[in-house]
Each structure stands twice: as structure tokens, then as C-alpha cells.
Nucleic acid binder design. Structure first.
Lengths: 186, 186
DNA sequence: CTTGACAAACCGTCCAGACGGTATCTTAAT
DNA sequence: ATTAAGATACCGTCTGGACGGTTTGTCAAG
């Protein structure tokens, strides 16, 4: 009967809040920090409330994954529309996303979260599927060795960002980007 | 008084066995599969025995990490000795290691294990340190944008291998390697 | 008044680590 | 060469807590 019970019901907002909190927790405490108790409490919802929206923990992680790939897909699609050259178009859009991740607000969230997600075998499989689907869709334009290499390099940079292992200054970063774009065109 | 109590004591071997089993378990069952019970049982040692060698779980993971980076360091050092060109020497050795990982016996172990390790914040920090140390040591020869990019690309390939997300055939692989070696020289 | 959106208490399991013990090894004085 | 005295390498049990999930109840909106 306390608090949230009496507030205006807003299921969609609560659902969003739960996903957001789950992402933040995985950022701050690693994958192990994402427990039903912690997430629900941090979101100001009871555990029962959380389990109402996501019937089990895997569903919560799946929700996170969907959120992530959904945003990524939309950004890529948008980026591709403004690229006149067909060859390597998807690769360049992918590059844009990765290079943009440093500045974006929710970039850090994505990053550490992703590592956490990838440590879950089931979610690894889903990521595999995502990659396979896109490789398939753009096999005509983005399957050259140059494109593949460019995307690998972007992944490496992305990994370095996640781990904060390298410290790449902005000029170098831009030079690398230019180099990779050139690669995607050959 | 049972069995292992009476066998010849062989601390170093048992220690090695424990690390090996831990790596195998993380490969087969993901990070969550590495529990003290599972590791000790699979290694034919009691949990008490395990905790004798590694006072807590973190120490076990640290041991794994040391094992990994130790082997990596030795391989890199060896590879560097057979490279006459100074510029980018470390980068090329690093490339060799990454490209060799597909064929090596314990490669799979390394790979999935590494993902598990990277999801642990403390171990991420140690990896950060490893990178920083090496970047520092070879700042004179391997800090060019080309070298950095080559290493990033290798990391991307390595990540793809881990996730089995891409399927890169051997010819493409070799072409990529040649390309990256050229990058390390410029 | 039915249904969806929660709350709150509870359960079974699993897991990290503590603890007290026992067997084997090493060392050094005899 | 013996052997006592410690150090080292284990074993087996227990516990406290965390965690995923269930169940039952309550309130509010349509």
C-alpha cells in the first residue's frame, strides 16, 4: 500500500526505468551487480514489480539487449541513408556508430554493459545472430576484406574504449577513422 | 583420511591442475560456472584444498590472469627476438600471438576465459595495467598511429574469434595479417 | 467488477569462505 | 642415522548470506 502503489500507474515508464537502472548497475558494479533485488530497489520498485514486467532475469537481460541493438539498428539505418556510395555503406555506418560512442551520453552505459552481456552465453548467441543477419543483408556491398578489416579495427577501438586500456587522443582518432573509411571503399 | 590425503603430495601440480580446470570450466559453462565447488571437485581436490592454494576466489582468478599474461609475455618476447626491424616490432609480435590463437591448443580456453575475466572490474584494471606497461615500454617503436590501428584490428579479430560472430576463412585471414604487418611498418 | 500494476513476505538453492582436523614433508639437533 | 618439532598440504563440515523465483494480497483504472 505504500508509495508506488498509490502513484499514478505508468507501466511503460517503469519498464524503461528498470532497463535504465539495470544498465547503470552493470556499469558501476559489473555483471554481478545486476541482481533482481538491486535493480528493483534502485528503480524504486519492489522485486515483485520487476518480475511483473520481466518474468525472469533472462527476460530482463533480453530486454536490455533488445534496447541496445534496437538503438544501434536505428542509428545505422539513419547513417546509411545519408551515404551516397553503395560499396561499404554499412561498414561506414557501423564506423560512425563506434566512433560516436565516445561522446554520446549513454555511450559508457552501452560499453560496459555490453561486456557484461557478452559474458552471458545466451546473449553471446544473440549477438552472433545480429552479426550474421547484417553480414547476410549487406553481403553485396560490405563483404570485402577491406570492409571486414575496417569493422574489426572499429571493434578493437570499441574494446579499448570499454576497458579504457588505451588513451587515444582526438586527432589520432580522426586519422584512424579516415583510414578506415578509405579501407571500406577499396 | 581418504584417498588424496594419502597420496604423494604434489602442491605445484595440484595448483596447476586447479588453474587448468578453472579455465576449462569457464570455457564450458561461462563465468558463472567457475565456482569453488565446481573447480575443486573437477580438479579432484576438496574445497578446503583449493582454498589452501588460493585463499579466496579472487586469488584464483588472479592466478589465472597471471598464467595468461605470463604465457603471452613469453611468446611476445620470443617473437620479438626473431624480428630484425625495430619499428613496430612489438606490434608484429602481438599480431603473431593473436593470429596464432586460432590454431593453438589452449586458444579456446584463453578466449572464453578472457571474456569472463574482462567482466570482472578488478581484472579489467589489471589488463589496463598490462597494456599501459607495454605501451610505455615500447613507446619508442610502437606508438605510431599505424601500429595502434594494427593492434586494434587484431583485437577486433580476436573478439570475433571469441564470440564466433564472424567466420573468416584462412586466405582472408592471411591477407588481413599481411595488411596489418604493412601497417605496423609505416 | 474485472484486470493490470504493483507490494511484501517467503522458499529452496547455491555459494564463498571459516574452521578444525589429519596426513605428509622438511629440518635440524642429537 | 634417528627422531622430535614444526611447517606444509590437504580433508570434510558447517554457516551465513545472497539470489532467483513463487505466492498471496492490495489498490487503482477502465
Amino acid at each position: 500500500m505504500s508509495l508506488a502503489h498509490h502513484r499514478r500507474k505508468q507501466p511503460e515508464l517503469v519498464r524503461q526505468q528498470l532497463l535504465e537502472v539495470a544498465a547503470r548497475l552493470s556499469l558501476e558494479q559489473g555483471a554481478a551487480g545486476v541482481t533482481l533485488d538491486a535493480v528493483s530497489q534502485a528503480a524504486g520498485v519492489s522485486k515483485g514489480g520487476l518480475l511483473h514486467h520481466f518474468p525472469n532475469k533472462m527476460a530482463l537481460l533480453d530486454g536490455l539487449f533488445d534496447d541496445l541493438t534496437g538503438k544501434l539498428d536505428r542509428t545505422i539505418e539513419q547513417e546509411m541513408r545519408s551515404d551516397p556510395v553503395a560499396h561499404g555503406r554499412f561498414t561506414r555506418a557501423y564506423l560512425s556508430c563506434v566512433f560516436a560512442m565516445t561522446d554520446e551520453t549513454d555511450a559508457q552505459g552501452w560499453q560496459v554493459l555490453t561486456i557484461a552481456l557478452l559474458s552471458e552465453p545466451q546473449l553471446r548467441a544473440r549477438w552472433r545472430l545480429w552479426v550474421a543477419d547484417h553480414a547476410d543483408e549487406f553481403v553485396g556491398t560490405d563483404s570485402s576484406a577491406g570492409c571486414l578489416l575496417a569493422r574489426f579495427a572499429a571493434d578493437g577501438l570499441w574494446l579499448a574504449d570499454i576497458l579504457k586500456s588505451h588513451d587515444v587522443d582526438q586527432p589520432t582518432r580522426q586519422a584512424m577513422r579516415a583510414h578506415l573509411i578509405a579501407l571500406s571503399l577499396q
